[in-house]
Design a protein around this nucleic acid. Structure first.
Length: 137
DNA sequence: GCCAACGTTGGC
DNA sequence: GCCAACGTTGGC
């Protein structure tokens, strides 16, 4: 089981929006980067990930899971990119800020820090466990 | 609001 | 197939 991290600007699509989408979840459209695409393609049903607020917020705020694997992104006219469906699993009792992540030596190699522009990222088992713990789960 | 980092586009 | 120009992301 792999772990992931999804970035979203809360003004566009927030954790609250994701929670409001409920059990049925939503599609994660709009990825137009081939590294992010590769990550989407590698996702398996039930795999979990962090939901991160970029720009306004800059914190990991919740846990989501994949409920539908890779299929074509209807918002991509070129037909080159796809998406998955995800749903909210649980909020982090204490959101973990980017600042806190950067301050943690064990998280120095996290993609969020090393390649901050990648919108869909892999998270290692160790990073997953640590950030969850920092977030009070 | 600025700007660095990065990806993509398109001319050659 | 290279690379300059341009656009976008996202932290600060």
């Amino acid at each position: 089981m792999a772990y992931w991290l999804y970035k979203s600007e809360p003004s566009v699509w927030s954790w609250d929006d994701q929670v409001a989408a409920g059990e049925a979840g939503t599609f994660w459209s709009g990825v137009r980067n081939h590294v992010a695409k590769k990550n989407l393609e590698a996702m398996r049903l039930g795999e979990q990930g962090f939901f991160y607020h970029s720009n306004d917020g800059r914190a990991v705020v919740g846990v989501v899971e994949v409920i539908r694997t890779y299929y074509p992104d209807h918002t991509d006219a070129s037909g080159r990119f796809g998406m998955v469906d995800i749903r909210a699993v649980a909020p982090l009792p204490a959101p973990v800020s980017l600042e806190a992540i950067k301050a943690e030596p064990a998280l120095r190699a996290m993609v969020l820090v090393a390649n901050s522009r990648l919108s869909v990222q892999p998270v290692t088992d160790a990073e997953w466990a640590l950030v969850r713990r920092m977030g009070g789960l």
